[in-house]
Structure formats: structure tokens, C-alpha cells
């Protein structure tokens, strides 16, 4: 019996492509309404995020960071280049699952917190019998145990954003996109949320692409930082941060790094005029 038949071949990612997110030579243009002139939002951007890593894109407002996240999330088209999101290794083949935490919580105010998380679970076709366990686990993870039956408008802004994070984690995402998730919160709440996020990540270990304009937030959270500038919107520097975790925001090494990067930003921004 010929046992060595051609087996149905599972396409394994190439070693190079073991990145969870791989973006190559991405360009995106907007045509100004009513005119023929085009405006380049993203100019020839390449980046990759390895599985289990926390990678941040830092840049000034309007440099196209959010657009980049939307393209990776598949809700905005692009003009050229390639974007690839791969499922977690060691899991059965599936469409990559993407969690997204937006600037504002974007919760469905007419559903309870549990209902909001279940919305994502239903959207991702998670079997109904797993819902309750996942809702309880994720709400507990973000520090909202027992809030299942509450409506979002009765929660504070920070708590709402926690529900949004729980929603994103509940689908067990292959990648988690975060678009300045703490920028709408007051400074103290934001700081607490950053700490708690580190704690959550230590347990859940998702792959994260985080976007912010806040350099201290970026150096505190990330394994690696891509620095982006405007006019044209490009990545001009990549910095690895090999400091051990858990980190403290007042760690002098972080502060030094932040100062250096701020310097770098200023010189680049002045260079472009």
C-alpha cells in the first residue's frame, strides 16, 4: 500500500512571513472631492509585527496612522502594496481574527456590557455555549467582574473603554489593533489603564499594533516603535526597546529613550519644513 501519497498540503507560512502582520510598500491616496488632485495619505510604508509582540506606530496627528490601522483591519481600501494578516501559529487554519479598540469606545449603548461582547462573539460565529464563559472571563480580566447586566451609558469613560478592550479580547484575536485607546481619558485614568493593559497582556499574550501620538506611552508599552512623519506620510525610523517587563513609567532608561526620540522627531519635522 502506497502510504506516501500526496497529502493535502497545508500551506505553512514561509519563515519570513511568520510575522502576524506584514505590510509591504503600502500606498494610499485620497482624491479631493470635486477636483482631480490627489493627496497621499500613506506613502510607501512597510512594517511587520511578529507574533506575540507589542508594536507601536508613533506620529503626529494627521499622519495617516489611523488610516493604516483601518487598512490592516480591512475596512478601508488601498492603492498599491500588500497587507497580510496571518492567523496565530499552531491554531487550525482560519480567517485571521482581528480585535480593534478605537479611540472612543464605540459600544452599542442599547446593549448591556455582556450584550456588547456577545455582539463580537456572534459576529465571529463563536458557538453560543462558549459565550457566557468568555464574557465572564474577559470582564474579569479588564476588572469589570459583575458588570454584565449594566448598560454602557451608566459606566465611566474608562470603564467603557475597558468593555471595548474586553470585547476585542473575547474573540481571541490573532492580532489586536489599538487606535489611541487612552487619548480620550483623563491623565490619571489613562495611566491606570496602561498599567492594567500590561497586566492583561501578560496573561492573554496577543499580537498588538498600537497607534499613538504620545511618545512616553509608546516607550512604556512597546517592544518596538515605528516613527512616522507627515508630508509625505512615511515611517522614518524603527526603534527596538529591549527593556524587561514589568516596567515602571519612571524608569530612567525609559525617560532617556523618550527624550532621545523626541529630539529625533523634532529634527525630522524641522527637516521636512
Amino acid at each position: 500500500m502506497a502510504r506516501v501519497r500526496s497529502q493535502p498540503e497545508v500551506i505553512r507560512p514561509e519563515p519570513m512571513a511568520c510575522a502576524a502582520i506584514a505590510v509591504r510598500d503600502l500606498t494610499k491616496k485620497f482624491s479631493k472631492p470635486g477636483t482631480d488632485s490627489q493627496f497621499i495619505v500613506i506613502d510607501d510604508v512597510s512594517l511587520s509585527v511578529e507574533e506575540g509582540r507589542f508594536v507601536t506606530i508613533v506620529g503626529p496627528s494627521g499622519c495617516g496612522k489611523s488610516t493604516l490601522l483601518n487598512i490592516i483591519a480591512g475596512i478601508e481600501p488601498y492603492d498599491s502594496g500588500s497587507v497580510q494578516v496571518s492567523p496565530r501559529q499552531g491554531t487550525p487554519m482560519h480567517e485571521p481574527r482581528i480585535g480593534y479598540v478605537f479611540q472612543s469606545p464605540r459600544l452599542l449603548n442599547w446593549l448591556t456590557t455582556a450584550g456588547n461582547i456577545e455582539f463580537a462573539l456572534e459576529a465571529q460565529n463563536v458557538p453560543r455555549e462558549q459565550w457566557q464563559e468568555r464574557v465572564t472571563r474577559q470582564l474579569g480580566m479588564v476588572g469589570l467582574a459583575g458588570q454584565e447586566r449594566n448598560y454602557p451609558l451608566k459606566l465611566s469613560g474608562g470603564m467603557q473603554q475597558r468593555v471595548a478592550i474586553a470585547r476585542a479580547l473575547a474573540i481571541e484575536p490573532d492580532i489586536l489593533l489599538m487606535d489611541e485607546p487612552f487619548s480620550h481619558l483623563d491623565a490619571i485614568t489613562a495611566r491606570k489603564m496602561r498599567f492594567d493593559l500590561m497586566g492583561i497582556l501578560a496573561k492573554a499574550k496577543p499580537t498588538i499594533l498600537f497607534v499613538t501620538h504620545d511618545l512616553s506611552e509608546a516607550v512604556f508599552l512597546s517592544d518596538r516603535i515605528y516613527m512616522m512623519k507627515t508630508n509625505p506620510a512615511r515611517i522614518f525610523k524603527e526603534v527596538a526597546i529591549d527593556l524587561p517587563r514589568p516596567r515602571k513609567p519612571e524608569d530612567p532608561r525609559l525617560l532617556d529613550l523618550e527624550r532621545d526620540l523626541v529630539q529625533e522627531f523634532f529634527s525630522v519635522l524641522e527637516g521636512t519644513g
Binding site: 480591512g74 472612543s104 455582539f119 459576529a123 474573540i171
Partner: peptide, 19 residues
């Protein structure tokens, strides 16, 4: 923003309508 959120989470047409 909510419609975008729905499509990021791949909600199908009926779910988008209802919720």
C-alpha cells in the same frame, strides 16, 4: 463609527441590522 466597528468584527448583514 459603530458601522465601522461592526464591519471590523465581521458582523454579517442581519446582525448589523438587528444590533
Amino acid at each position: 463609527g459603530l458601522m465601522e466597528m461592526g464591519s471590523v468584527y465581521r458582523a454579517n448583514r442581519s446582525l448589523m441590522f438587528r444590533k
